[in-house]
């Protein structure tokens, strides 16, 4: 959306907090796309820069979607290795981050398929570790539970918007959804999450 205003309301708060999202701070002169093309031509340093920009966002992408931290690490590493393998095929027709998250989504879906298959036929334990065992914080546990209660697609739309900072169009492209559907699902997810989190917030206030 070329004439869209900057996300001055929600994201300004996010930038204040510094922890709201994992979107990379792209202040460098070289854009992601230029770096990727340079890497495809053989400049290894370009990839190092890209890795620095996206290692935390990508790890966060998997960490919030996969309960097991070890699996999240494996998947993040696998995604970067897939980027390395597919560098020669990269074309700067789309934003690098869209391409990166598309790869990440494919890897995530494959992981979910395999895990579900194992759980269905082999009876392997599903990825719901105990909070204490996972070393999770209370906020993380609360957020996981709240987000898990959302519809699967609504949840993906919300996470992609809130943490990966993708535009509606990019989310629609990733999830193969029309723009209006993305907006309505995002709205529904936010309202549902507000309803889920409101009692918890009230309890916290009362406790204080």
């Amino acid at each position: 959306m070329e004439d869209a205003l900057p996300a001055f309301v929600l994201h300004s708060e996010a930038s204040h907090s510094g922890t709201m999202n994992d979107a990379p701070a792209n202040s460098s002169v070289d854009s992601d796309e230029q770096l990727m093309l340079a890497f495809a031509r053989g400049a290894n340093g370009a990839f190092n820069t890209l890795f620095e920009r996206y290692r935390q966002p990508l790890f966060g992408f998997f960490r919030r979607r996969v309960a097991d931290p070890a699996h999240a690490e494996e998947l993040a590493q696998e995604t970067f290795l897939a980027v390395l393998r597919g560098a020669s095929r990269y074309q700067a027709t789309a934003l690098f981050r869209t391409w990166l998250y598309a790869i990440a989504f494919k890897i995530l879906r494959a992981h979910r398929r395999k895990a579900a298959f194992r759980a269905t036929f082999l009876g392997a334990p599903t990825e719901i570790p105990e909070p204490a065992a996972a070393g999770s914080l209370d906020v993380e546990v609360m957020m996981r539970q709240a987000v898990r209660a959302l519809d699967a697609i609504d949840r993906e739309v919300l996470l992609l918007r809130e943490f990966e900072q993708l535009s509606y169009a990019e989310i629609g492209s990733l999830l193969d959804l029309p723009l209006n559907t993305v907006r309505s699902r995002l709205f529904r997810a936010r309202m549902a999450l507000h309803a889920l989190l409101a009692p918890t917030a009230a309890n916290v206030k009362e406790a204080l």
Binding site: V9, L10, E13, A14, S17, T19, M20, N21, D22, F39, N44, F47, N48, F51, R55, Q56, F59, G60, R63, R64, P69, E73, A76, Q77, F80, L81, L84, V139, E140, M143, E162, F163, R190, L193, H194, L197, A201
Partner: peptide, 27 residues
């Protein structure tokens, strides 16, 4: 804004250094 603030509290830990070592070595 409240929803966004709540979600902002969901912070993930830092990337393990092993990932960086493996990926950079591959690159």
């Amino acid at each position: 804004r409240g929803v966004s603030r709540s979600l902002a509290g969901w912070v993930v830990p830092e990337v393990p250094p092993a990932i960086e070592a493996n990926v950079i070595a591959q690159a």
